[in-house]
Design a protein around this nucleic acid. Structure first.
Lengths: 237, 237
DNA sequence: ATTACCATACATGTATGGTAGAGTCGCGTA
DNA sequence: TACGCGACTCTACCATACATGTATGGTAAT
């Protein structure tokens, strides 16, 4: 009943830039970003058909994007009912944080004993960039923060470990986006980053681990506030 | 209402036991097991069409199973070329092991401080089961080993952490299946399990962590041998 | 007013045809 | 013999049609 016109290859999807990547993968990245940034709100229904229409494609690539999102626990596919953006679970975020801390602390210890000097230089530069961005531009700051952590992992060849963290981070980043307008204590974060690099550069695994640990525990204190301020983003306790 | 009998329904599909799970998901579990057990050999091509025929279904569910396997890095989908079982990379296995150690050590430390006594009892029982299975039945032993580790994680509510490990384990389990016929030192593994539980029961995080660490480092020593014995299972160095 | 039923719309799951790109093979030419 | 080029085959990818389960609003019976 819907229109069926389709005379000619409608051609051209709004956000497709790279031709070689499959549509399903592109949709996945597109939707993933929108969920993390909070543009798609928890609980919201995502219809295969509607998203397919919006992007001038068919249901199949959308479906494949949904499957990937479901693997990452960003959406919940309920057969014959619908697909929904999952609400944030405080317990899940804390559990994800636990895993992230375990991995990143181990990586930091390794970096303290065997990261090359060039990596130290890169990290210092990233911190300088972060300092020059203290006012506004919080979203770009998040990107720099991510690059900082990734650089540490890659400096000791832990690409796989970083991949694991990337998945886990999605859940935590949803929180950070919620608190963007907040008076995020960027100087504090930068100070913590500095201590991490100090520990790594000094070849002191214990110090590097401790700095990493306290850095990654920040979210524990801010989480209750955020959950209270955005109740409909969170699962009912 | 939930009986419904279902008198007809062709009932084909060799391995379908649970009616409510989608075919794509079933195929995923089916293929995943076959890859881990080494029945599907690394490098082997998997054709959407052929697997669809073998299971009397269409290509679409097979495709979705492939996507899930690719997320787990068990197959590599190469557009317009084919989908292949990935060869094992020694470096990737070691990196995966690193992540697993980081998480499980953290879990063990937590268990040492807060696992309930009932969990200790369950773990001791599992070890007894493992002892009674020392000869042959190596495959069942692997299942008991997995249950042992999972029980520790769940005893302190780290379900998410276990989920992460489960994915990582797939790569490592492929190795373990290769060395099944080997004279696997089961008594040694059981001894290590025992020390882990001893540390947890004693409330000694350091001991529990050390026991877990040495247990999970076994694979490092056996890996080179296995890679040498099954060269075509591994990526060219 | 309330309940039971049913038509309808809409959701995901599955089947199938078509398309474009990559690899292979063999023929024809230099 | 060596090399280039086109026909053929195979693949994953996409579009579309159909199957089937679920939510919902209107309606008739109580």
């Amino acid at each position: 009943m819907q229109e069926t016109a389709k005379p000619q290859k409608p051609s051209r999807r709004s956000f497709r830039h790279i031709e070689s990547v499959s549509i399903g993968t592109q949709l996945y990245h597109h939707l993933r970003g929108a969920i993390i940034r909070g543009e798609l709100r928890p609980g919201q229904a995502l219809s295969e058909a509607e998203i397919a229409r919006q992007n001038s494609t068919s249901r199949q690539p959308v479906r494949e994007a949904f499957i990937k999102l479901a693997e990452e626990r960003l959406v919940s596919i309920q057969p014959q009912r619908g697909t929904f953006v999952v609400k944030i679970s405080v317990a899940d975020v804390l559990d994800a944080r636990f895993v992230r801390e375990a991995i990143e602390v181990a990586v930091a210890q390794e970096a303290a004993t065997s990261a090359p000097p060039s990596a130290i230089k890169d990290l210092r530069q990233l911190i300088e960039k972060q300092k020059s961005m203290e006012h506004g531009h919080n979203e770009e700051f998040l990107a720099l923060d991510e690059e900082f952590h990734r650089t540490i992992a890659l400096s000791v060849g832990r690409a796989h470990a970083w991949r694991v963290i990337e998945n886990i981070k999605a859940q935590m980043d949803r929180i950070r986006y919620l608190s963007l307008d907040d008076a995020t204590p960027l100087p504090l974060i930068i100070e913590q980053h500095t201590r991490m690099v100090d520990g790594i550069e000094a070849g002191d695994p214990t110090a590097a681990a401790a700095a990493t640990r306290s850095h990654l525990r920040e979210i524990i204190v801010s989480l209750p506030d955020i959950a209270a301020r955005f109740p409909d983003f969170f699962e009912a306790a």
